[in-house]
Design a protein around this nucleic acid. Structure first.
Lengths: 196, 196, 196, 196
DNA sequence: CATGAATGAGAATTCATTCAT
DNA sequence: GATGAATGAATTCTCATTCAT
């Protein structure tokens, strides 16, 4: 089936073709720059990497947060989708929860500085919560609830705090201290959920 | 008895009294500024608060990390001292470990942005690890070892990673999101040590 | 009877009706934008208000001055026409001059920033002189000459300088300082013409 | 007698010597730049002309208005002083008023763009009114009042509007159109005061 | 030793103008 | 012809850091 947006809905879709390609270039460059220098990388650096002028970035993504959101949107969505799926396919709700958090860790540990930005408290990044945390928290909440209903975990832990804690544990995991394995610490945290 | 710190630790014991007083002023101002604006506060702000020129700060503390280290030194030392004490006074090694980590959390959650700085990966803050983490890690290691020897916790967890994880969990705890209680998450982590 | 302006004045009388309609839209939008934000309003704002792309504006009016000229052309022409008419209908040449200048002031005080732009010295606006001042100066000159011939005013004042002075006096009249009434100052100037 | 500030009052006057010299350099460079490029000249250009870094300018004059004020302060004060003096030495109050306005014109016509800036309505320049206009308006008011009391001029003209009008008439006088002589137009205006 | 003036690299952001579609 | 995406020069402002006094 063809892409709906191009095929029928949009009345002026034509010239967007290359603009969208350009946006893709931008996102790739930004993603790369984020990995290299963190999400605080200067706008000009991203522009240079993308081979465009800084104005182009500002046109597409007026604020830095817009850019960050766009860069990671897809992966966040995939994570959101995976929640119910894991719940359906896992042996127990707790197993689903553990697996899902594993997925989330996968996402975070490859994103230099993302966790940091999200916890920076900088108002410029407030919208990241709206787009990421708030999108993921309900999913996490459902998994926690299911595990709680099954009596597998201690009660009273919320989705937000668990997400936030996992995010925190992954922070700095990418700065290469071999002595710190974020995944192992998250395992500890998740194991702690069972203790009652 | 003379001041222990000057008498035995310091390699440059002869400091004029007023110089020390000056340094004290600096540290107080810096501590206050850190609380108000985080550890990234502009040097000039600290100087102004202390009523000295910026040059004076640079003379005493060539890098920002030096200043941070100096500001929190005492509390870190107190934490170090507390380790063996708790081990001696607690019912079990695990209880001592839990209590000690609680102390560390106390330290961190009142220091705006300190946890963040320590995990920033910014090379300027690398030395914080040398001064804080590395000072505390051995203590933590001993407690872990004792608890391990007593069969109270799962084996294979190192002092460094536990310290780092706790530090991470406390990051952002001061940005006032009521939904996130760092201490509770640390509890989870510590509880997780027993599992397995 | 056909539109006089197109029928006789314009050297390119064959313009497609929709192109002219388009240009009208542009001029209206520009006029509105000039009132709101002054003649220095960003091109993009005008384009947005007109519902066209910026390219369209550049096609019709390569320079900003071209646009300004076009926006105010009609009113300038009306002013030009009024000169001889007032001379014929007034009791004395001086009365005609005073009335005509009054008309000119009417024109200027409602045009935010026009007077300012015309005196800005910015080379981009040089052509405004060619289109406005130079169109009006001869009219003003005739009125001055008539009044001079009648012995009503002091000799030696040129049309250009009087126009320019009046334009200057109207500058800033629209920035709302209630203490400044441009018309009153122009009255003073015109009264000064009589003093000898 | 020695300079009081250096000699006895200031507790830390010594190193201000070169700082003050530097400020002088800054003011000279700014004055020159204002003449060349108007008061909107980029900060960097002024810095370059002065042979200092931009930061130095920001240190001394946080806002552009501060710099403009400083550059013209002396001359404004001289103008203020001249008011009463002229009143005392002139044959009639009107003669004093005319002479004083002549002085003000002298000041303005050599200051490229100053009149423009003062009438720009730009909030950044609001403080110029506070420093210039408001300083001069009372003087002008006194002269007007004296001339009015002597029955030499028409009543009802305020100091502010006269100052503003004169300022306006001098606007653009420096952009070198030989056909416009600001002084002559101001003469007309002042002559107009007598009429009526 | 202390001071704080000076430096200047760096980052953000805006907009006039061009040009591929 | 019309569109609006892209460009990048231009400008402002901030701070870490150095160094003359």
């Amino acid at each position: 089936m063809a892409d709906l947006e191009d095929g029928s809905t949009s009345p002026a879709p034509r010239k967007r073709a290359d603009a969208r390609r350009n946006e893709k270039t931008l996102l790739d460059a930004a993603a790369a720059a984020f990995v290299t220098s963190g999400v605080d990388v200067p706008v000009r650096d991203i522009a240079a990497k993308a081979g465009v002028g800084v104005g182009t970035i500002y046109r597409h993504f007026p604020t830095r947060a817009d850019l960050i959101v766009a860069v990671y949107q897809h992966q966040v969505e995939a994570c959101v989708q995976a929640g119910p799926a894991l719940l359906a396919s896992s042996s127990t709700p707790y197993a689903a929860l553990a697996a899902w958090i594993d997925l989330f860790v996968d996402f975070l540990v490859t994103k230099h500085g993302l966790a940091k930005a999200m916890q920076s408290g900088d108002s410029a990044y407030q919208s990241l919560h709206g787009s990421f945390i708030d999108r993921l928290v309900p999913v996490c909440g459902q998994l926690l609830e299911a595990a709680g209903a099954a009596g597998e975990i201690r009660p009273g832990i919320g989705g937000f705090e668990l997400m936030f804690a996992v995010g925190n544990l992954c922070s700095g995991a990418d700065y290469g201290d071999a002595r710190y394995d974020a995944r192992r610490m998250v395992d500890l945290l998740v194991a702690g959920l069972r203790a009652g």
